[in-house]
């Protein structure tokens, strides 16, 4: 009798626990089910390559004879190679020119467009136009514009300036690429700034004007602080994008002349798909990841420290 009672109570307790379990299961079932596809693709196509990249960087990848563990050889060889110095220098120069020629343009254009009373819609469309058409069409356009006998040199000759070998002179090649990319990309960034500028309350300007602040002081003390958070964000985004730039280089100069436009990322592509040295390419990728992560961490720190960011 006692035993029976005891067994009954265990059954009851078991049933209760099972009920709780199945209730948790039922509560979470659909929520988890909706996440499973995302977990699968993120795991398979993002995290697997990321982890594999780190693993591969310690191996000599050989599809025929099998992979062989080589320790840090990929890293030491990559750092010792002569291409490394060239690629790092080219990439830094490319990033620097990108900031010098391209970073300030979108915000200035955005402020100017925001002041247009008419045709503002058309101007927005025009600056965004290069973002709409395929990049390969733009590459072809720039090849033609940069042709030694092309329109740009013709324009220069009107001012009595001799022709420039835009893409075939090693001192001009990076400049030419940055110019083309700035032309191509500033519109989208300008529209982001424009959205920020439009969002600034108009009564701030009204108040400043009543207090006697001129137009330029209003820009300096109201507009620019109003879009300050965008400056830092877009600066980080530009750094991350340009530090990995290689497609325009592939298309316009092929890394030349004399390796003048061989960027870091281009070096990775060369190691992997020309020299089939996948281990070294992975090691280069890991190093770049470390540097970029440190860079953005430092920049976010700076943002955190600065007031009203």
């Amino acid at each position: 009798m006692v035993a029976r009672l005891a067994s009954q109570s265990t059954v009851a307790r078991k049933g209760e626990a099972g009920g709780r379990l199945s209730r948790t299961f039922r509560d979470y079932f659909w929520g988890v089910a909706f996440l499973i596809p995302a977990f699968a693709v993120f795991g398979l196509f993002l995290w697997t390559p990321i982890v594999k990249g780190i693993v591969y960087s310690f191996y000599n990848i050989d599809f025929v004879n099998g992979n062989r563990f080589v320790g840090l050889t990929n890293y030491t060889e990559a750092l010792a190679s002569s291409d490394m110095g060239i690629a790092v220098r080219n990439t830094l120069y490319y990033m620097f020119l990108g900031v010098l020629m391209g970073f300030w343009v979108p915000s200035v254009v955005a402020i100017a467009i925001s002041e247009l009373r008419r045709f503002q819609g058309i101007m927005r469309l025009v600056v965004y136009l290069p973002n709409i058409v395929p990049a390969v069409a733009l590459y072809a356009m720039w090849m033609w514009l940069y042709d030694p006998l092309g329109p740009l040199n013709q324009l220069l000759s009107w001012f009595g300036i001799g022709g420039v070998d835009w893409l075939t002179n090693k001192h001009w090649a990076t400049f030419s690429i940055v110019l083309a990319e700035t032309w191509q990309g500033f519109g989208a960034t300008a529209l982001i700034y424009l959205a920020g500028i439009v969002g600034i309350p108009k009564d701030l300007y009204e108040a400043a004007e009543t207090d006697g602040a001129g137009v330029f002081r209003r820009i300096r003390h109201i507009t620019l602080p109003g879009i300050r958070h965008l400056y830092l964000l877009l600066f980080i985004m530009q750094m991350i994008a340009t530090s990995q730039g290689f497609q325009t280089q592939v298309a316009l100069t092929g890394g030349g002349p004399n390796n003048a436009t061989l960027t870091y990322m281009y070096q990775i592509i060369n190691q992997a798909f020309t020299l089939l040295n996948y281990g070294r390419a992975s090691a280069l990728g890991v190093m770049m990841f470390v540097v970029l992560t440190l860079l953005s961490a430092v920049l976010y720190r700076l943002q955190g420290r600065s007031p009203q960011a």
Binding site: P49, I50, G53, Y56, I268, A272, Y278, G285, F289
Partner: peptide, 10 residues
């Protein structure tokens, strides 16, 4: 871009 190559191999 940093995992372009392993992505391809994957």
């Amino acid at each position: 871009a940093t995992y372009l190559i392993p992505n391809f191999l994957n």
